[in-house]
Design a protein around this nucleic acid. Structure first.
Lengths: 345, 345
DNA sequence: GGTCAGATTGACAACGTTGACTAGATTGGT
DNA sequence: ACCAATCTAGTCAACGTTGTCAATCTGACC
């Protein structure tokens, strides 16, 4: 059985093609009775508009791309699923575009992608989204985009953005450790080009300073967002002269690495050393002991990002209240688990 | 600057629209001189055919979906990138379709997806691809698909498939351990519904039997493809009465978990216990010590899968030799690293 | 009752591409 | 030199949808 078209719907509802089109597109100039008839016909025939035809006809399009250059597959997969779900709800199709920001002209690459694939817009994930040179250049070319970034306040810039307040959340995580009695807390960075790393560090520092605890350079270590980087750094720290009583990893993979390092040194977690991560990755819950972390709902974040993008593209398609909103904040939430449950010794 | 269309190309090349179309589609009835003129015009204008129009016109389509229900983000991301690259080369667009095989009627879901999104075909990844009920039902509905599965010989069934010979590779990994002098080698399963687990176990068993080493049930443990599952099982094994001298994890995450468990028990790897994984995940190379594993080039596998699919869809579009091929084998390759470099004690 | 503004609906073309069909050019056989 | 067969290239319509513009309907008002 082949697919129902707008034509079939028009026949069943006894109206013209155009009227059906109007109903589909939520145009206001349709009488309520007519609208109802049409909607019923749509329901009955299980009609769904054909993306190809829609994209072809207008210069509007119902396709967007998700652009990312992220080393963390857990993050990537989560964002994909969130955006994909939002796309389904909003009637868009999704094209994924993994890329490498460092080779070639990424601006040109994305601009060409938008033209060639007739895209309505881009959802850009960190860290590319945090490079203003890239996003500004695209925006100036008239390319619609929304950024997902890490920031502690609404970013400047013309393009809409969802900003994740990692700083506030890292502050909360650090507070939590301080309240457990820790005052020599190590901080393990992720990649520097991810703003999230810097923001999380800022939250860590702010919390320490608030409690009058000095930030010790020897406890703040750079590295990357990976299990192994966490393992190695924690190993060095914990087997050194003045091991920290708590370790705050910039994400859960780092924290999991730190956890493994602690165990390999015969240390008990949380009794001998407390460990906290960030991002609430699936494995953080099942680690032994489960990891304290901060949860950001990537699904909600992605959905909001799509909403902001769509309200740029078709202001009438979204509800009035949110139509003019252009920046939206998310604050990850502290999830205290066993890996930090003991009082510092 | 707006996009070049077939019309522009025709004008520049001084031929008709249709002739350009013929050149694009590799139809044979074009004189060489004409073809050259057209190709040059295409080059000059940086013309790229418009997917929407193409899909709309014929009932053919140049869009495929990648269907997966895989718990491992590393695997998912790799397969995505491989298929995506093949799509670019072959002129297809890619739609990702993560799904949950267990809820709802997956056959109906996919059939509807194909109809609604006008898809030319599906690339199906494990474990869904390994459920014959699903793939047969789809194939009978006339839906073109290619499967990526784990098998030690070409599968029956009408649909084309790429089969990864995990059994042979696991055999090689086990052989490698045996040659190092190990004769009590533990095997840690992944999820049972992944054929890869069973195949890898079959390879493990075959290698042992070949060397006259009995398979000990107490060393073969079920679980899932995760770091934590590997950690826990290895922990139990290694702290038991008769710890194995080597552990073969069904994938690298399990092996990484086992590695962490060994370290946490104060065991040296590879001196006290050898550990091997599978899949050559990015972190296997950077683990301490680096993990012995088996490498499957997901990029090549995905590309081959797309080739098989396309040769179904448009036999004339691919070279003659490979046009009739419908099953293709890949054998992951043993990568010996430090985690198994010592002789068994 | 007639007129007009505004609300509601419809007819038609167009988006870029390809399938079906047709026309002109070339070749080979007589 | 002529006709048929074969190659090559062109014309036109159609895919499903929406923008433009015109037609019809409604009701308020004089």
């Amino acid at each position: 059985m082949s697919k129902a078209t707008i034509k079939d719907v028009a026949r069943v509802a006894e109206v013209s093609l155009k009227t059906v089109s109007r109903v589909i597109n939520n145009e206001p100039t349709v009488k309520e009775a007519t609208r109802k008839k049409v909607l019923q016909a749509i329901e009955e025939l299980r009609y769904q508009p054909d993306m190809s035809a829609r994209n072809l006809r207008g210069n509007k399009s119902y396709a967007i791309a998700l652009v990312y250059d992220n080393p963390n597959p857990y993050y990537v997969v989560d964002v994909q699923e969130g955006v994909l779900q939002a796309c389904r709800e909003l009637g868009y199709s999704l094209q994924i575009h993994p890329c490498n920001a460092n080779d070639g002209d990424i601006v040109e690459e994305l601009a060409e992608l938008v033209r060639n694939s007739r895209l309505a817009g881009l959802v850009i994930a960190p860290p590319i989204s945090e490079d203003d040179r890239v996003t500004d250049a695209l925006y100036e070319q008239g390319i619609h985009l929304v950024r997902i970034i890490s920031a502690s306040k609404a970013p400047d810039g013309a393009s809409p953005a969802v900003y994740v307040n990692d700083r506030a959340a890292a502050h909360a995580v650090t507070d939590h450790l301080i309240h457990k009695g820790h005052n020599n807390i190590a901080f393990l960075w992720g990649e520097e080009e991810h703003h999230s790393s810097g923001e999380r560090f800022a939250g860590y520092r702010a919390a320490l300073e608030e409690h009058g605890i000095p930030v010790q350079d020897s406890l703040v270590i750079e590295g990357s967002y990976s299990f192994d980087s966490g393992f190695q750094r924690a190993n060095t720290l914990l087997s050194g002269d003045t091991p920290p009583s708590a370790i705050f990893g910039c994400n859960d993979e780092i924290a999991a690495g730190a956890l493994a390092a602690a165990k390999s040194l015969g240390l008990r977690v949380p009794e001998d050393v407390a460990i906290a991560g960030f991002e609430n990755s699936p494995f953080s819950k099942h680690a032994q002991p489960p990891l304290t972390t901060a949860a950001q709902s990537l699904g909600d974040i992605a959905k909001k990002a799509m909403m902001l993008l769509v309200s740029e593209l078709r202001p009438q398609a979204v509800d009035g209240e949110s139509a003019s909103e252009r920046k939206s904040e998310f604050i990850p939430e502290l999830i205290a688990r066993a890996s930090t449950s003991a009082e510092a010794r």
